[in-house]
């Protein structure tokens, strides 16, 4: 897994080349639409990271073996998911300013993404506010499960409320050319590999952090604190 970052870099270079130079302009949207490649890849990766967080949280609850490790990866995938969600929102807002004339609209996907962002920020806030390690693992896992169930309900409710987001993939087929699809897929893998790399890095950092704290506590104990 250590070599992931060496894969992320060339993927990003190729992805950027494809998205910014290789793919032709779309007549109606001009240059601005090129941000869409970054946007879509990050949005998919964000959803995958949140799904990974859900699965890992479920594992934390049902499997005692290796609970610490699973929990570290659950936290790391939530963090990567939040990062990707933030980037999705930021790139989407830039594009919306050009295409729709406003940074923010109350479209279902935008609104759902924003609420999802808040819900997973809440996950990190909850983790931060719990002192007991075992409790933090279980409580945040339960929170993650409940929140994951909430996201589709949020989407449904906002969708009934209003919708203007462009739909790229419909039941009748794709609204994009094969050339664009290649760029989309390359960029999706570029962001996915980056996210995986970040998840491993963060989980490892957490491991080191917890180990240091354990040793520090032991040492203070020996010194008589």
């Amino acid at each position: 897994m250590r070599y992931l970052r060496w894969l992320a870099l060339p993927l990003w270079v190729v992805g950027l080349y494809l998205a910014l130079i290789w793919v032709p302009d779309v007549r109606a949207l001009g240059v601005s639409y090129r941000i869409f490649y970054i946007h879509l890849g990050m949005a998919w990766t964000a959803l995958l990271a949140m799904t990974a967080n859900f699965v890992l949280s479920l594992l934390v609850l049902v499997r005692r073996k290796g609970r610490e490790e699973t929990d570290r990866f659950a936290q790391a995938s939530a963090e990567a998911g939040i990062l990707m969600t933030t980037a999705t929102l930021a790139s989407g807002m830039l594009w919306a300013r050009v295409a729709w004339g406003a940074y923010w609209t109350w479209d279902p996907r935008l609104t759902t993404t924003a609420i999802m962002w808040f819900l997973y920020i809440g996950y990190l806030l909850l983790r931060q506010a719990m002192d007991d390690d075992t409790k933090r693992r279980v409580y945040s896992a339960v929170y993650a499960l409940i929140v994951f169930v909430d996201v589709p309900i949020v989407y449904l409710s906002v969708r009934w409320w209003r919708s203007i987001h462009p739909v790229v993939f419909t039941e009748s087929g794709m609204n994009i050319t094969p050339q664009m699809l290649v760029a989309v897929i390359v960029f999706f893998f570029a962001t996915l590999v980056l996210a995986l790399d970040l998840i491993y890095l963060r989980a490892f950092q957490e491991k080191v952090h917890q180990e240091l704290q354990k040793r520090r506590a032991r040492r203070l104990g020996r010194l008589g604190y």
Partner: peptide, 27 residues
């Protein structure tokens, strides 16, 4: 139940609960 064991639970609860219940508010 989730925030009962945390520090500053009165601060944390609205931050967790209000976005969570947004579909309910819309409905």
């Amino acid at each position: 139940a989730l925030t009962a064991q945390t520090r500053l639970r009165e601060l944390l609860l609205p931050a967790l609960l209000l976005p969570f219940t947004s579909p309910l508010l819309l409905g």
